[in-house]
């Protein structure tokens, strides 16, 4: 960063100039932060307040909500549907982000390294294509792909296997696969960039010394990519935690409540059952989980700020 003036020069500067300088620094920031305060920070604070009330979308408590203390939160921890949605969210994040996208992205980046340009361009375009598609369209595409008459079952029949009603028989696996399909490109791009910073001569020297490909990966490549891996893991975890549209389109949270992750459950509570207060409490939990991950992420990024 750039140091602003020498200390003695600054001491000589008049108070008026200093005031003008401070204003010059702060003024341009104000419009952006006013908007963030109004539509980002404000709602979070209101949400915190609403989570302590019985505010509803319709009915008597819509206009005159009462403070009910921690009742929404107590209800939440006794609510089996909440506990289920928490576990579903954990499983969804672990399966589709931490394992699927992360490992898949790494594997693709490693496989693509030092392949021909054409192969890299073609595979890259296809994988990134899935990422660029709007989430809603990804949902439709996978709904069709996994439906009874869908492509997957047709292929399975073709090789003499029995198909399944995937969205009913294995709903969580279905949405997990769809999210892996959609998100792997991101990890792949991050890891390809990090991989290009691993010096080749280091790897070749190790190879000359007789290190196997696995040993080279384990002891040279991965340790050098540690930072990229951690940052990527945090980013995709936060993204996956908030996934709504993909699941909403594919299963609507069902069948029953089998894919009702936290965002879906929050939507159902607040907008379908009109319990805005309870929905707000769920939103606060979602925000808190995101906040915890975000702080970990922040600690890792601290040197870069």
């Amino acid at each position: 960063m750039v140091a602003v003036g020498l200390p003695d020069a600054r001491a000589r500067r008049s108070r008026a100039t200093r005031g003008r300088r401070a204003a010059a620094r702060v003024l341009p920031i104000i419009p952006a932060f006013a908007l963030i305060a109004l539509f980002f920070l404000g709602p979070i604070l209101w949400c915190l307040y609403a989570s302590f009330t019985d505010v509803a979308l319709t009915g008597a408590t819509a206009s005159t909500p009462h403070l009910i203390g921690l009742r929404n939160y107590r209800r939440m921890f006794e609510d089996p549907a909440f506990r289920q949605s928490l576990w579903l969210t954990v499983a969804f994040v672990l399966g589709s982000a931490v394992i699927g996208q992360n490992v898949g992205g790494m594997a693709l980046a490693l496989l693509m390294k030092s392949r021909s340009r054409i192969a890299r361009a073609v595979v890259g375009a296809i994988v990134v294509g899935a990422w660029v598609m709007p989430e809603l369209v990804a949902g439709f595409v996978w709904y069709a792909f996994l439906s009874d008459d869908g492509t997957l079952n047709a292929i399975l029949h073709g090789v003499g296997l029995h198909g399944k009603s995937w969205l009913y028989a294995m709903p969580l696996l279905s949405v997990t696969l769809a999210n892996i399909w959609r998100g792997t490109a991101f990890s792949m791009l991050v890891y390809s960039a990090a991989l290009s910073n691993v010096p080749d001569d280091l790897l070749e020297a190790a190879a000359v010394d007789g290190a196997s490909a696995f040993a080279r990966l384990r002891h040279i490549t991965l340790p050098l990519m540690r930072r990229a891996v951690m940052t990527n893991l945090m980013t995709i975890t936060l993204q996956t935690l908030a996934v709504f549209t993909l699941i909403f389109v594919m299963t609507g949270g069902g069948p029953g409540t089998k894919t009702q992750t936290l965002p879906i459950y929050m939507y159902q509570s607040a907008f379908k059952f009109y319990q805005l207060g309870y929905g707000a409490a769920l939103a606060i939990v979602l925000l808190a989980v995101g906040g915890v991950f975000s702080i970990v992420y922040l600690r890792m990024m601290r040197e870069e700020v």
């Binding site: 709602p43 609403a50 936060l238 707000a280 939103a283 925000l287 995101g290 906040g291 922040l298």
Partner: peptide
């Protein structure tokens, strides 16, 4: 920190 927060969750209060 704000970039990490799930926008999905903010939608309930924003609706209010």
């Amino acid at each position: 920190f704000a970039t990490g927060l799930p926008i999905t969750a903010i939608l309930v209060p924003v609706y209010g």
